[in-house]
Design a protein around this nucleic acid. Sequence first.
DNA 1: GGTAACATTGACGTGCGCGTTAATGTTGGT
DNA 2: ACCAACATTAACGCGCACGTCAATGTTACC
Lengths: 159, 159
Amino acid sequence: MTEESRPERFLQIGEAAERASLTQRTLRYYEEKGLLNPPTRMDGGFRLYSPEDIERIDRIKQLKELLGFSLAEIKEMLVAEDVRTQIKAEWRRDADADEKAEKARTAREVTLHQLALIDQKMEKMSSLREELAQRVQRYDELLVRFAESKEPEPAPSQS
Amino acid sequence: MTEESRPERFLQIGEAAERASLTQRTLRYYEEKGLLNPPTRMDGGFRLYSPEDIERIDRIKQLKELLGFSLAEIKEMLVAEDVRTQIKAEWRRDADADEKAEKARTAREVTLHQLALIDQKMEKMSSLREELAQRVQRYDELLVRFAESKEPEPAPSQS
DNA sequence: GGTAACATTGACGTGCGCGTTAATGTTGGT
DNA sequence: ACCAACATTAACGCGCACGTCAATGTTACC
C-alpha cells in the first residue's frame, strides 16, 4: 500500500533518490559506472529521471539487495533490459526485421540465464530453509524434555 | 557426486581452503574476525581444522554467497550454532538445567529469525522470477510473430 | 641433515560501493 | 534582485573483504 509505483512525471535526483531509498551519490555513481544511462537534463544541468529510469533504479536495487550481485554483474544483466526498450523504441521504424528478431533472441537468452541463476539460488535457499526448520524442531523437542523433567505431574493449565 | 562432504580427519589450512574453494588468507581472516573459533594447532603451530570447523566454514560460505550477508551479520547468525554445540558438549555435565534451557530458547529464537529472513528473501525472489518468466513468454510471442511474417505458408517440417 | 612443500605472523595494498566535504551553479518564489 | 532549496563536479576518505608480498619457521622425506 505504501508501495511507490511508477511516477508519471520526470523527477529530479533528490526525489528519485528518496523514492528508491538511495542517496544522490549512489545514483550518480550508478550512472558513472554505466548502470544507468545518462538521464536528460534541465537547462541548468540538473538531472531529470524519466519513469523508465526510475523503474530501472528499482531493478538495480532489487538485483543488488535480493540476489547480492555486484554492480558489474548487474550491468551485464541489464543488457537484456536495454535491448527490450531499444526494440520498443524502434518498433515501427524501418529497421531490419531480422536484426530485431536476433536482438529479441539474445534478450530471451539472457533472461533465461537470469531465470536459471534465480532457480539455482532458490533451490539452495530452500534446502537451507529445510535444515533450519529441522533445527527448530529439535530445539522444540529439547525444550519439551526440559519441561517434562521439571514438571513430572503436569497440572491442567489455561491460556 | 563431486560433493566434498564432511571429512573424518583433521585438515591443515591448505587442504581446508581447497575443499571450500577459499584461500588460506580468507580462513585466517574469518578466524581473526571471530567467525571461526581458533582451531587446534600442531606442535609447530600449524592450524588443524576439525570436521566441525570444516562444516562451519561451509556454513559461512553458504550464508555469504547465498544470502549475501556481511561477515558481521553472519557472525551474529552463527551464535545459534555455537550455543548448539555448547549444549551438546555440556550435555551430561552438571550444568544448571535452567540455564541450558534458556540457551536453547535463545538459539531457537535466533534460528526462527533466520528462517523469517530466508522466507522474506524467497518471496521476493519468486515474484522476481515470475516477472522474468512472463518476460520470456513475451519474447516468445514476439518471435513467433516474426516467424509468421516471414513464413506465411508454413511447410511441414520434421525434427 | 638437507631440502622442498607447507605453514606462520605481520604489514601494506587493492577494488568495490559508496560517504563526505568543498567550491560553485541553478531554480523557484517573493 | 535576492534568498533558500536544490543541484553540479571534483576530489579525497573509508570500511569491508580479502590479495599480496616479505621474512621466517615447520614438516616430511630421502
